[in-house]
Simulated scan of single mutants.
Amino acid sequence: MLNKSIVAAGLLLAGTASVHAAEYQVTPVAEGLAYPWSLAFLPDGGMLVTERAGRLRLINAAGELQAEPISGVPQAFVNSQAGLMGLALAPDFAKSGELFLSYACGTAEANHTCLASARFNGSALENTQEIFRVEPAKKGSAHYGGRIAFLADDTLLLTLGDGFDYREQAQNTANHLGSIVRLNRDGSAPQDNPFVGEQGAQPALYSIGHRNVQGLVVDADTGRVFSHEHGPRGGDEINLIEAGKNYGWPKITYGIDYDGAQISPYTELPGLEQPLLHWTPSIAPSGMTLYRGELFPQWQGNLLVSALAGKEVRRVMLKGNQVAEQESLFKELGVRFRDVRTGPDGALYLLTDSANGSVLRVTPTN
């Protein structure tokens, strides 16, 4: 249990000329969360946190975790990686109260990634309804994706996974597996989606060829969309997402199978996109933010990637659309990180991945 502030500094991984490790302090905000998965900041200064176990929790503006979970949450299929996952507030949340939740739904024999909309009235969810369901159903309880982010036109992106045992389907536009989809707020597919009009293709598809996308950021300044996904053994990726593009899985990969078998002899092929960055060995990237706060000016415009296996947050410095340098942060805490968010106060907020998970707040030491 983390019960006091921890003062530490980042460990530099690559380059020294233009990078200086930031000194920071880490303070627990809330503890006792069952595998917290996603975090959203409320206009009143509070926070909502999803627990993979199927609960939505409220931390009020005073920083107090409310004992009772929020009611009205859709029923999730909870097993292994399956459960309640992503959370995003609508751009007009302050007026509409609308939010969106991703979750596994169904049974062990037939389940999907699902998306629901609801209205938060300050204490409970109202008008909760499923608005999108990945097709087809699959067996098992792995690789759901689950991150949600809004584009400037008020449509939303939902990241998905390949279902683990269904990886070849990531190249099949007749289903949603291994893709990122773009949806209207009612769950319908926008008519200008890139695969609309392609015979047999799912109209919701935005990009294909993904393995298990659990990081998603829309740069409000430029409109760029960044995602990251888990590789198998090695080959974790950060990608710059463009409508209609194919990101290659499993035709190309920088990783191998967990038993050491080759998945593909190719790391690149014509017509398939290359990642901006790939990690071998895997760090297991699990969440991402683009820092635009004021507390850490040296992080301005950097991607910060939470990692499970790496037990770190990887700071990725960009030069245009290229990766310039990296830095490893928070390894001294020795915990698995599920998500990382930039708070409205400019602090960095971290979710730790455990049965007794925490929300942590990172601020400068000075």
Results as ranks from 00 to 15, higher is better:
Q191C: 00
F93C: 09
L151V: 03
Q129H: 12
R182M: 06
Q129N: 11
G231M: 05
G234H: 03
H228R: 00
S286L: 08
R224D: 15
S188P: 06
L115D: 07
S96Y: 02
A21W: 00
T363N: 11
G223S: 08
L308Q: 05
L304W: 09
V217Q: 12
G235E: 04
T280Y: 09
F120H: 06
T289H: 04
A9P: 00
S227W: 02
G293V: 01
A90N: 11
G293Y: 04
A152H: 12
P69T: 04
E325T: 13
S306D: 08
H143N: 14
E325W: 00
A307S: 14
G122M: 03
A116P: 09
L84S: 12
R336I: 01
Q274H: 05
R233S: 15
G235Y: 03
Q81T: 03
E332F: 00
E98C: 01
S80L: 09
W37F: 13
L11D: 14
H230A: 08
L160G: 06
E109T: 14
Q66W: 02
D345M: 06
L160V: 01
Y291C: 10
G215R: 08
V225L: 06
S123G: 14
E332C: 09
T352P: 11
Q300K: 15
G244P: 11
S227E: 11
L216T: 05
R52C: 07
Y35C: 01
L351I: 03
N366L: 12
L277H: 12
G178E: 10
Q169V: 00
Q300M: 10
F164R: 13
E168M: 13
S117D: 11
R52E: 05
A220M: 04
P28N: 10
N127G: 11
N321I: 02
T50G: 08
F226H: 02
W279N: 02
T16G: 15
I241H: 12
D92H: 04
Y254G: 04
L333A: 10
S354F: 00
L156H: 08
A324E: 15
V29R: 10
L42F: 04
T113P: 06
G46V: 01
L177P: 05
A189H: 00
I283L: 15
Q274D: 11
A347L: 02
A170R: 05
L308A: 06
G86Q: 07
R185I: 11
R336K: 11
R211A: 12
R133T: 14
M317L: 10
V19W: 12
A62N: 14
G161V: 02
